[in-house]
Amino acid sequence: MISAEGITKSYGNVRAVDNISFAIREGEITGLLGPNGAGKTTTLRMLTCYLKPDSGSIKVGNYNTEENPLEIKKIIGYLPESAPLYGDMLVYDYLNYIAEIRGLEDKGRIRETGKLCGINDVMHKNISELSKGYKQRVGLAHAMIHDPDILILDEPTSGLDPNQIIEIRNLIKEIGRKKTVILSTHILSEVEATCDRIIIINKGTIVADDRTEHLQKDKVNESRLSIKVSGTDHDTLRRELSSIKGITSIEEKEDHKLISLSLSYPGSMDLRPDIFKLISSRGWIMYEMKPEHISLENIFRELTAGGDNEKH
């Protein structure tokens, strides 16, 4: 659906995006993840034809951004960062203006999109009077009004309260069932919650590009297990567990009643049967054994260490 080949963009002496290539498939929600100033917004601006790459090429559908920007703008719906809408307009007038520019004759589309984005009750309010959450929804409606094949959202949940974040995420997931969605964020839980695929970008270059679950599995080659046991003491349990081949680390966890430990071992092994057998053979009682979820945070930190750049 979208392919970028060796795109580079500089602002003066600062190289915001440095020779990156990626492909985005149809029907996927792709998250562009990176620290502030990593080059996410610049990348999205190039995809939407707002900026021209200094070198490299971008193909969206059958069109090239250099040769057919108008055709690309027709099939893309774009919500820029912070939804910079015209504050002096009423929501309905604004959406009507966008519909007119996009050549939509069916005015019912404004109400349909308004319903989908939950803004029909503020249609006759001035945009400048809306809360941040509603402005973001109006921005989403603006991006979706022409039922685009591709939806590009730059930090769609930034500045929203937790309830609004969940609502917008659910909306994006709903849209992502039928459309290709690309969203940028520096919030890790956002991509974990919404995206099928992640492109991690740091200092203008791509440091990871894979499906979310593959990244979690492959990039951190480690499994972690949390256990809670009674009937022994910390030192004995630790000593006994150390005898199991494969365990790389044992960390104590705070627990007032039970002995609670976090065990690490290579991701290719499954040591749960060995651990269970050992504890039951000693007559100790196991209250809990559960795999610890390795969050994207670890992967992100590993890949973008020292990468909190200045915003471009």
Binding site: R45, Y50, K73, K74, Y78, S82, P84, Y86, I101, R102
Partner: peptide, 14 residues
């Protein structure tokens, strides 16, 4: 100043 130029220039308008 407001950033809405980004909206205008990403609409299908020459």
């Amino acid at each position: 100043y407001s950033g809405s130029l980004e909206i205008l220039m990403t609409l299908p308008v020459e």
